[in-house]
């Protein structure tokens, strides 16, 4: 059932939850919004982020420097404080789906990720605007959440429509029933129109990068061509694209001493670093930047779909905004599909 909530009641809900939860929500910082922990005082209404925030959600669930293990084992670890996350968008949730597959849904489980996912209520929201770099449409995705949320907010007259996406979400609404109202059927219809309109806008703004083929095909047909040198020409290996990417999850298992004990840390890492895959003897399997650049695309658009049945790109466009070499993933994908000159195929060297 879809309900309604006013901005004041939503702020009240967030404030109430800070008593029992760590609440993460958009916060105004100068002329932009950032994801931050809400102080218990929680001044005023929650700002509405019209599209994804600058930070990928992995920043709170898969922190840049996590403790993966303590040596020797320490029993009686306290469970993390439950969390609530406001401001998640559809692309954020697609990235969560990618990371769930790698970190949770197979033989090996990342305990930190599993615990953080389990203990976090996700309050997602429709996109009501898009950044110039947004390209979820090119991945076949939509700018409004379709799953993996507990509550989903859609702006409507007088506040927001609230859709529940889980039992946990239902419970949250039931526990704070006084803050919610019934939704008018016409606002639910208007939500559908608004969603369709924004989806069309994202499609239109990406019409200048027409792609027809699956990315898996466009990328793998360039296994041995020289196009990568051209695409990587302005890459300065700053790793920014990896850091802001919501699906990138490479990490360095870094061991440090801590008094008599030892900590095992997981530090965000980048496949663009020359030393990323270096071995003890000094051999580096991908010595050239062009090989690492190709590997990045190969992993996101070929290997990941083959291994996990989902493309490891959400079309959030953060990598486009972060790139100081002005490399635009959409343009690269477009070139990969359209440029196919057999004479370009490099001589096999092995």
């Amino acid at each position: 059932m879809v309900r309604g909530i006013t901005p004041a009641a939503l702020a009240e809900l967030a404030r109430t939850l800070t008593a029992t939860h760590d609440v993460f929500a958009p916060r105004r910082c100068g002329d932009r919004l950032v994801l931050d922990r809400l102080a218990s005082a929680g001044a005023g209404e929650l700002p509405w982020n019209a599209y994804r925030l600058p930070e990928p959600l992995k920043a709170i669930w898969f922190q840049p420097g996590r403790i993966l293990a303590r040596w020797p084992r320490r029993d009686g670890e306290t469970a993390p404080r439950p969390r609530v996350l406001f401001g998640a968008k559809a692309c954020d949730l697609k990235a969560v789906a990618c990371l769930d597959r790698v970190l949770r849904d197979h033989e090996f489980k990342d305990p930190g990720w599993c615990a953080a996912r389990e203990s976090t209520l996700v309050v997602a929201g429709d996109c009501t605007d898009c950044a110039e770099s947004c390209f979820c449409s090119m991945l076949g995705d939509l700018p409004y959440p379709t799953g993996l949320f507990d509550l989903c907010l859609s702006p409507a007259e007088g506040g927001y429509l609230v859709e529940t996406g889980s039992e946990r979400g239902e419970r949250l609404v039931a526990d704070h029933a006084g803050l919610f109202s019934d939704a008018a059927p016409e606002s639910v219809e208007r939500r559908a129109d608004a969603r369709a309109e924004l989806a069309a806008r994202v499609r239109r703004q990406n019409e200048r990068f027409p792609v027809r083929d699956p990315f898996e095909k466009s990328v793998s047909k360039h296994d041995r061509t020289r196009i990568w040198a051209e695409l990587a020409a302005t890459c300065v290996e700053c790793n920014a694209c990896n850091m802001v990417c919501p699906t990138c999850h490479c990490f360095l298992l870094h061991d440090v001493r801590a008094g008599d004990a030892a900590l095992r840390l997981g530090l965000w890492d980048s496949c663009f670093s020359a030393g990323h895959a270096r071995m003890a003897g000094g051999l580096t399997p991908r010595l050239q930047l062009t090989e690492r650049f190709r590997n990045h695309y190969q992993h996101k658009f070929v290997a990941f779909p083959r291994n996990w049945g989902i493309t490891a790109c959400s079309g959030c466009g953060r990598c486009i905004e972060a790139c100081m070499g002005r490399i635009d993933k959409r343009e690269c994908l477009h070139k990969l599909e359209t440029r196919w000159i057999p004479s370009e195929v490099a001589q096999e060297i092995d």
């Binding site: 970190l103 999850h249 360095l252 070929v302 290997a303």
Partner: peptide
């Protein structure tokens, strides 16, 4: 199969 440094192709 998580940390991402030992891949050969897929």
């Amino acid at each position: 199969g998580i940390c991402g440094r030992c891949n050969v192709g897929s």
